[in-house]
């Protein structure tokens, strides 16, 4: 069914709208003729994305750009408003129950906050062991040795398996989160800001763990982060999001050496680096606009130095400027 050419997960035209329903008073006001309307946030706006088997795709963007929403939808834990998700070439919506279960197990998510994502009332062996036991990947009899394997692989001491999450440090908790995801032997991980809450030295440990696991098990990975340094380090390809749309996607080398979209260029300029000394900071002006009321045309035009008339009216199409390098900018047509 799947070979190297079929994307592991892909989405076509995927959108998600969050609507804040009117309350009772609002509804009455509307019936009486008030111009009040429901507030809509287009968190993800017709995104096409392919995650190829075995690759690490980095997804970067500022807070509120919809990168977590996109990750959650690809993972199947948040329904989409529009568009399709394909798992190994099959439309998720048209899958049989058995296939859908396979998809649910095979794509696992690791969350940002290791303090909020672990149930404080469960012991580590319950947290990690519940899913594989339920899905029949191990038996009650073999559970102990199975747990031991998973914990060792994620750098946890198996003798701690009867402890509660609060007895661990932040880095170890993140390892528990990873172990929980790895316990069902997934082929794909969606990591949502998984190292953002950690100290530099702990972050390095977790990143190394990711890279080891990936090499060992040939994992496919969607790595969501706002930290370009981290994404650059571990990804093969990078997609840049701005206000619900993907504005540029390219291989790491290409994106960092020849960024095309003005937003990507600005973002790369902003990354503080160890080897950049005594910088004269020349920041991007303005802020990310409110997704409640996004600018027309290209979302980036109010902050863009190259904005033309067409940018204010027409949404640019996503275009291939070089093999494998796609961008959504009117400058690509010039």
């Amino acid at each position: 069914m799947s070979d190297d050419k079929t994307p592991f997960i892909s989405c076509k035209n995927l959108s998600r709208v969050f609507v804040k329903k009117l309350d009772f008073a609002g509804k009455i006001a509307r019936t009486l003729g008030s111009k009040i309307r429901e507030e809509k946030v287009q968190a993800v706006d017709s995104v096409d994305l392919d995650v190829m088997p075995g690759e690490v795709l980095g997804l970067v963007g500022e807070s509120g750009c919809g990168k977590s929403t996109l990750g959650r939808m690809l993972c199947g834990i948040l329904p989409s408003s529009n568009g399709d998700i394909f798992y190994k070439g099959n439309n998720v919506k048209k899958m049989s129950t058995k296939e859908a279960l396979h998809y649910a197990i095979n794509v696992q998510m690791i969350f940002q906050d290791p303090y909020a994502s672990l149930n404080p009332r469960k012991r580590v062996n319950q947290i990690i062991g519940e899913a594989p036991l339920y899905h029949g990947l191990t038996t009650k009899k073999d559970l102990d040795s199975y747990l031991e394997d998973v914990m060792l692989r994620c750098g946890l001491d198996p003798t701690y398996k009867n402890r509660y999450p609060h007895q661990f440090s932040g880095g170890q908790r993140q390892r528990i989160g990873i172990a929980r995801a790895m316990a069902v032997q997934p082929e794909c991980l969606v990591c949502d800001e998984s190292v953002a809450a950690l100290d530099v030295s702990i972050q390095a440990q977790i990143l190394n763990l990711f890279m080891d696991l990936r090499k060992e098990l040939n994992l496919t990975c969607l790595f969501i982060s706002h930290d370009l340094g981290v994404v650059e380090h571990i990804s093969d390809r990078i997609a840049v999001m701005y206000l619900g749309r993907i504005v540029e996607i390219a291989s790491v080398e290409k994106l960092f050496s020849e960024p095309f979209h003005p937003y990507t260029q600005a973002l790369l300029n902003e990354v503080p680096r160890l080897d950049k000394r005594d910088v004269d900071f020349a920041p991007l002006k303005g802020e990310i606009p409110s997704p409640l009321d996004p600018p027309e045309g290209c979302h980036f035009h109010p902050r863009c130095a190259h904005a033309m008339d067409i940018c204010r009216k027409v949404i640019p199409e996503i275009k291939e400027t070089a093999p494998g390098h796609k961008t959504r900018c009117h400058l690509a047509d010039v």
Binding site: V200, S201, A204, Q205, N208, M211, I234, L274
Partner: peptide
Amino acid sequence: LIGSVPSRNKRGQPLYQI
């Protein structure tokens, strides 16, 4: 600390772990 900062020179290489 410096070794554990991800940077472009060491892309994909294991980071130094304290």
